[in-house]
Lab assay of single mutants.
Amino acid sequence: KELVLVLYDYQEKSPRELTVKKGDILTLLNSTNKDWWKIEVNGRQGFVPAAYLKKL
């Protein structure tokens, strides 16, 4: 499993997105899109802007 660090808080703006908090370490599911990465948070899957995340 690949992990990502959340660099900035992000509030979901659609049902396909997820809310994340700065400092969270989460599972990366897909990073093929350069702008939006798919991650998992508490069993939910969704997208967060790639600029808000850093691969560990």
Score class of each variant (00 low, 15 high):
51 A>H: 14
28 L>G: 01
20 V>C: 05
27 T>R: 14
49 P>S: 02
46 G>E: 03
23 G>W: 05
3 L>H: 11
33 N>Q: 11
53 L>G: 01
16 R>E: 12
22 K>C: 05
10 Y>D: 00
8 Y>S: 09
29 L>T: 06
51 A>K: 13
30 N>I: 09
30 N>R: 06
6 V>W: 01
37 W>T: 02
32 T>H: 13
23 G>K: 02
5 L>E: 14
24 D>Y: 06
4 V>A: 08
33 N>W: 09
27 T>L: 14
50 A>L: 02
39 I>K: 00
25 I>P: 00
49 P>G: 02
3 L>A: 06
6 V>P: 00
45 Q>D: 11
15 P>L: 10
4 V>P: 00
25 I>G: 01
39 I>P: 00
2 E>G: 11
9 D>Q: 03
43 G>N: 11
8 Y>F: 13
52 Y>E: 01
22 K>D: 02
27 T>P: 14
52 Y>D: 02
29 L>V: 15
36 W>M: 08
48 V>Y: 01
27 T>V: 14
42 N>Q: 13
4 V>C: 07
1 K>V: 14
7 L>P: 00
41 V>M: 11
7 L>F: 02
42 N>E: 13
31 S>M: 10
22 K>G: 07
22 K>Y: 05
8 Y>I: 11
40 E>Y: 05
14 S>K: 09
56 L>Q: 06
26 L>R: 08
41 V>I: 12
34 K>F: 08
41 V>K: 13
16 R>Q: 15
31 S>Y: 09
13 K>I: 10
54 K>V: 12
19 T>A: 08
45 Q>M: 10
22 K>Q: 10
55 K>D: 04
19 T>F: 06
1 K>F: 14
49 P>A: 03
46 G>H: 05
13 K>V: 08
42 N>K: 12
28 L>T: 01
37 W>L: 02
55 K>P: 13
5 L>K: 07
2 E>F: 13
41 V>W: 13
19 T>C: 05
20 V>T: 03
29 L>H: 07
38 K>M: 12
34 K>G: 12
3 L>C: 06
37 W>F: 05
7 L>M: 14
4 V>M: 02
50 A>Q: 07
11 Q>E: 13
47 F>R: 04
10 Y>P: 01
20 V>N: 00
21 K>R: 13
14 S>C: 05
19 T>V: 06
51 A>V: 11
55 K>R: 14
36 W>K: 03
24 D>K: 04
53 L>S: 00
56 L>G: 03
3 L>G: 03
36 W>S: 04
38 K>G: 06
20 V>A: 03
9 D>L: 02
48 V>M: 05
22 K>V: 08
13 K>M: 12
38 K>C: 08
32 T>R: 10
52 Y>F: 14
28 L>Y: 02
19 T>H: 07
38 K>R: 14
52 Y>A: 14
29 L>D: 02
36 W>D: 02
31 S>N: 09
21 K>H: 15
3 L>T: 09
37 W>C: 03
51 A>Q: 13
2 E>I: 12
51 A>D: 15
1 K>D: 14
56 L>M: 10
56 L>D: 02
7 L>K: 06
16 R>A: 15
15 P>V: 11
45 Q>I: 11
33 N>H: 15
10 Y>C: 01
10 Y>Q: 01
7 L>C: 05
40 E>I: 08
23 G>F: 04
34 K>N: 13
25 I>R: 05
52 Y>K: 05
